[in-house]
């Protein structure tokens, strides 16, 4: 469970082009559920996601993860948390070009000093599960859009993170792939993982497995509308 209280995030603080991407957010994201953040472009969804995922520190306000305050921690501890607790699927997937699929999937585990053989087995099992085993050794730039997305999901899960964070995971994907993605999310739920994602896409935030929809406007929560 993640709680945000009075969280503000300013960009370019103290400079003339200062901008408040988030402004006084109070929010509880339940564990063991699927939560979708939605809202117009520029409303601060990605920013909020980065605070939830301990990717950045809020300018003011507090973030608690399972009761522990994490907003004041040094960067290296945020990193530690990030690699054990969160798996990330980015808006543009952000696979490292030039490396093969399996090398990309192994990446988040590298700083943990894993056993190479065991790690490779784990990565292969993930890829197998997502139907990508036969593409393990090709460079990621040759993958199709759907495959890239699944490779990114495999990478996000390599450290067995209990919380998966996905930013617009289905942008540019057709309905077949959106449904396939929802199947994957259902699998993750079955494994007991929490899923937090942003989406513009009604096919996502109206899906039946979504427990919780948060709407945002201009860096604030939009409380007018009832959750779908």
């Amino acid at each position: 469970m993640i709680t945000l209280s009075a969280v503000t995030k300013l960009y370019n603080e103290g400079r003339p082009n200062q901008m408040a991407a988030l402004d006084g957010i109070d929010l509880t994201v339940p564990g063991d559920a699927v939560t979708v953040l939605t809202g117009p472009s520029g409303s601060g969804k990605t920013t909020l996601l980065s605070l939830i995922g301990c990717m950045a520190r809020p300018t003011s306000g507090r973030v608690h993860l399972n009761g522990d305050m994490v907003s004041g921690l040094p960067e290296s501890f945020l990193t530690g948390l990030r690699r054990t607790t969160f798996g990330f699927v980015f808006q543009r997937f952000n696979l490292v070009r030039g490396l093969s699929v399996i090398e990309n999937v192994r990446l988040p585990a590298v700083p943990l000093g894993p056993d190479h053989v065991e790690l490779t087995e784990r990565a292969m099992a993930r890829l197998e599960h997502l139907g990508l085993a036969d593409k393990a050794d090709i460079p990621v730039e040759y993958l199709s859009g759907g495959e890239t997305q699944r490779a990114a999901i495999a990478r996000a899960l390599i450290n067995d993170a209990p919380i998966l964070i996905a930013d617009e995971p289905t942008a540019n994907l057709d309905t077949v792939l959106v449904n396939r993605f929802l199947d994957i999310v259902a699998d993750l739920r079955a494994e007991g993982r929490t899923v937090i994602m942003t989406s513009h896409d009604p096919r996502i935030f109206t899906a039946s497995l979504v427990d919780n929809v948060v709407r945002m406007v201009d860096g604030r929560l939009d409380t007018e509308e009832a959750p779908a």
């Binding site: 990717m55 960067e75 290296s76 990193t79 530690g80 990030r82 690699r83 990330f88 980015f90 952000n94 696979l95 490292v96 990446l107 988040p108 590298v110 700083p111 990478r155 996000a156 450290n159």
Partner: peptide
């Protein structure tokens, strides 16, 4: 940037 985002520390 990607490495840092997926859990590499500055030290790493």
């Amino acid at each position: 940037g990607i490495l840092k985002a997926i859990g590499w520390d500055t030290g790493d």
